[in-house]
Design a protein around this nucleic acid. Sequence first.
DNA 1: CCTTTGCATTGATATATGTTAAGAAAGACT
DNA 2: AGTCTTTCTTAACATATATCAATGCAAAGG
Lengths: 197, 197
Amino acid sequence: MLENFKSYLNTQWGLPNDAIEELCNGIKTKKVVKEEFLLKSGEVCDLTIFVEKGLLRMYALNEKGKIDILQFAPENWLVSDRGSVYFNEPSNYYIDAIESTTVVLLDQNFIDRISRLGPSFRKLNDRLLHNHIRHLNKRVSLLLGASAETRYLNFIKLYPDILLRVPQWMVASYLGIAPESLSRVRRDLAKNNFRPG
Amino acid sequence: MLENFKSYLNTQWGLPNDAIEELCNGIKTKKVVKEEFLLKSGEVCDLTIFVEKGLLRMYALNEKGKIDILQFAPENWLVSDRGSVYFNEPSNYYIDAIESTTVVLLDQNFIDRISRLGPSFRKLNDRLLHNHIRHLNKRVSLLLGASAETRYLNFIKLYPDILLRVPQWMVASYLGIAPESLSRVRRDLAKNNFRPG
DNA sequence: CCTTTGCATTGATATATGTTAAGAAAGACT
DNA sequence: AGTCTTTCTTAACATATATCAATGCAAAGG
């Protein structure tokens, strides 16, 4: 139970095993069935989600009422609307389960407790924030200036595992193109002897 | 001299005036002429730039060799490739001056000194990071699912001042469209009695 | 086992946006 | 003032991607 989370606490947070057991006592976990929501637009997001097993997505609804996927969150990922948490304001995003998923819910109480154990949480969180910004900058620049094909190739390199776990239309949604367009991009790549992986 | 920066230190960082004078002693400022670079792709970014007066931009070159503007930085803004600073890796971005600009260069030495003055710097930095992520998430979701017109209208609302200070083709570059397309978007908006401001 | 449902693919067509080229307007420089 | 440069606009045309509709397929559920 919670193997991934405990291993994460150990390797990423640098916590010793006894502290981990201590921490995990009052911890909230949850089984999320496919299509169940952990956050809906309009709600204030008050927690960070660690994915123990399974796969989540975070998305927005666009002006045409369609889903735009901002990010996927497979095992060992943290996902949250950080803006909503930090500024305590309603979120514009949804987080739900693509697969049946086991998550660890990190609320303010947990953050407080882990912060008291030393500065390592703060350091990790700082790294996560910077990494997130770096990643988003890259994403923005690809969306600004790269073709659908380039964006798709980049996606494959970055998330080869996710590619195999979600339907193609979700990849298209992440890339900002129609599923039919992605199908054609793939056909053209195949024509030129491209093989993923 | 450095009025904006000092006022920023006071109101945003919550520093008292004597501490500010103390801090500003060894500080590095720089006059940047139009088109002069503060960061080039391939360099490791080792500082954060505060814009005292003037206007900077941060951009990437796309696969066609064209400029994609990630952000503008007018007075009282901080700009930096945070990823490059934090992970000490080469940047993919450029930062240069759109107008003749006076900047304050915040290097590690400055950060160290200001950190010693108390926890308020840390808190502000944390807020800046979260705000940045919130902003980038919004930008990504607009690029994923909104039309050029919607993105332009959003830009006007968000940066009415910048609209008047940069050539239209830079706005187009920020929006991820060709300058001719922006021209058409504007014509169509005008046709329907739209007036900015 | 059959039906239903969701997904991927394809073709035909539509639309938004890009490209090229030209000219007009506005600034910058001498 | 005149010349050069940059910017903006417009038009004609090209292209990437979207939309609509139909089909096939495979997995899920009765």
